[in-house]
């Protein structure tokens, strides 16, 4: 992401959606484009379509817990998701999403206040807020290294620039 503000509509998913449910391991070796149709497909018949329809993924408690396979983050990114908010989220899910350029924000209060598919969400990293029709919620400051990776696009883009600067 570039800039500090991200706006979009939400797709809302529940609690304890494991990384293995977001993308079962047997699809994790596929090229990302081929894996995307399998993303969330075992959760519910419409889950894959909902994932692709909205740039903000609202995930419930422990969304993405368990496996640390990065394919989980790659398919979410490839499905068009720009930010994941709600949680709290597992640390490997968090790292992998950030490294693929997908912002992750712990903000369970946003879910508790009520949110539905298609609702607008505005995340402001400078102001440290997330705003929905249900209210304005405080979010933790995003550390500089994470801002840098997101601004670059991904850890690969960040690493490429770093190596080029050293050469």
């Amino acid at each position: 992401m570039s800039g500090s503000v991200l706006r979009g509509t939400a797709a809302v998913f529940g609690d304890f959606v494991a990384a293995d449910v977001i993308l079962p391991a047997r699809f994790a070796f596929l090229p990302t484009a081929e894996a995307v149709p399998h993303a969330m497909a075992e959760l519910a018949p419409d889950a894959n379509a909902r994932l692709r329809a909205h740039p903000i993924l609202v995930g419930g408690n422990a969304f993405g817990y368990g496996s640390g396979r990065e394919a989980t983050a790659r398919v979410i990114k490839a499905a068009g998701v720009k930010a994941v908010i709600g949680g709290p989220f597992a640390r490997m899910f968090f790292r992998n999403a950030i490294n693929n350029g997908v912002l992750v924000i712990d903000c369970p209060a946003l879910i508790a206040a009520g949110i539905a598919d298609g609702d607008a969400v505005t995340i402001d990293l400078d102001a440290c807020t997330a705003v929905t029709a249900s209210g304005c919620f405080a979010i933790a400051p995003t550390p500089p290294i994470i801002r840098s990776i997101l601004a670059a696009g991904s850890i690969v883009d960040y690493g490429r620039a770093l190596l080029a600067a050293r050469a």
Partner: peptide, 12 residues
């Protein structure tokens, strides 16, 4: 960690 990070770690 994730996989891309290991690539970053190998490189840096």
């Amino acid at each position: 960690t994730g996989e891309a990070e290991i690539g970053f770690l190998w490189a840096t």
